[in-house]
Simulated scan of single mutants.
Amino acid sequence: MFDPERFVEDCRDAVRQDASHRAVAEVMRRALSDPGAVMDAFGAPEGPGLEPLYRNSDLTILRLAWKPTMMIPPHDHAMWAVIGIYGGREDNIFWRRLEGEAEGRIEAAGARALSTGDVCPMGPDIIHSVANPIPRLTAALHVYGGDFFEAERHEWEPEALTERPLDMAAVRARFSD
């Protein structure tokens, strides 16, 4: 049985033991070993949303529901992250910064599809874009090694792939109906 309050406490304990993403990734793997229990604890998402379960300066835990075919342009987190999918699918494209004349731009460097039960740890320098490629909501837990809402972060304009400051109000709006 998955207990959201216990999950939060386990993540907090993990960060106290190891400030990197490694210990939190293990907590997420244990939780996602039974994704149905996570879904039962929260209930199936009824609409898109971004719900903070815990937030302080060194840890943010979110429950997300991605709209069908929703896409998030390339962005950084400026902190480590651990993503766990408990219903649906999330496709990630990973990007790398270009140097020289193309500085401020990025190019694709890899990809990973995450399905129900998958966990994906990400280091603090990762840049990725995300899409929900399926015709139903995708449910996920995201854990970040800092204050997700207050960090100075960046995103890349989807057409020209040029860097700009991330607008958190726009991020929140993407998760509304």
Rank of each mutant, 00 (worst) to 15 (best):
G84E: 04
M79N: 07
A37W: 03
F148A: 09
M70V: 05
A78P: 01
G47W: 05
E99F: 12
S33H: 06
C120T: 10
A37L: 01
P48D: 06
A160F: 12
E155A: 07
R136Q: 12
S20I: 05
P52K: 07
R105Q: 14
R97M: 11
M122P: 03
A102H: 10
G88V: 05
L53W: 05
G47F: 06
P121N: 07
R63G: 09
E103G: 12
D58M: 09
W156A: 06
T162H: 08
P52W: 10
G145L: 06
V171N: 01
G104E: 13
M70I: 05
C120Y: 14
D18T: 12
V171Q: 00
H75Q: 13
E150N: 11
A14C: 03
L53R: 06
W95I: 08
V119C: 10
E51K: 11
A109E: 13
E107A: 14
V119N: 04
R105P: 04
V38Y: 01
A169D: 11
V15P: 01
H21W: 10
E99Y: 10
M39P: 00
D58K: 14
D18M: 08
G49K: 02
M79F: 04
V8G: 04
P68V: 07
D118G: 01
N132E: 08
A23D: 08
M1Y: 10
L114W: 04
E103H: 11
R6F: 00
D34C: 04
E155Y: 12
A14H: 06
M39S: 14
G47R: 14
A37H: 04
A109G: 10
G49T: 05
R105K: 15
G110F: 11
S57G: 13
A78H: 09
L59D: 08
V15W: 03
W156E: 03
A102C: 09
D58R: 15
F7N: 01
D167E: 03
G110L: 10
P73R: 12
I134C: 01
W95N: 10
P121S: 13
R29D: 07
F2W: 02
G100A: 10
A169I: 00
A170M: 04
R172G: 03
A23P: 05
I93D: 15
M70P: 04
A44Y: 03
E9D: 13
L32D: 07
D118F: 02
S33F: 01
H142K: 05
M71R: 15
E101R: 15
D167Y: 03
T162F: 07
G47E: 11
P133Y: 00
P165H: 00
G49A: 05
E99Q: 13
F2E: 00
V82S: 09
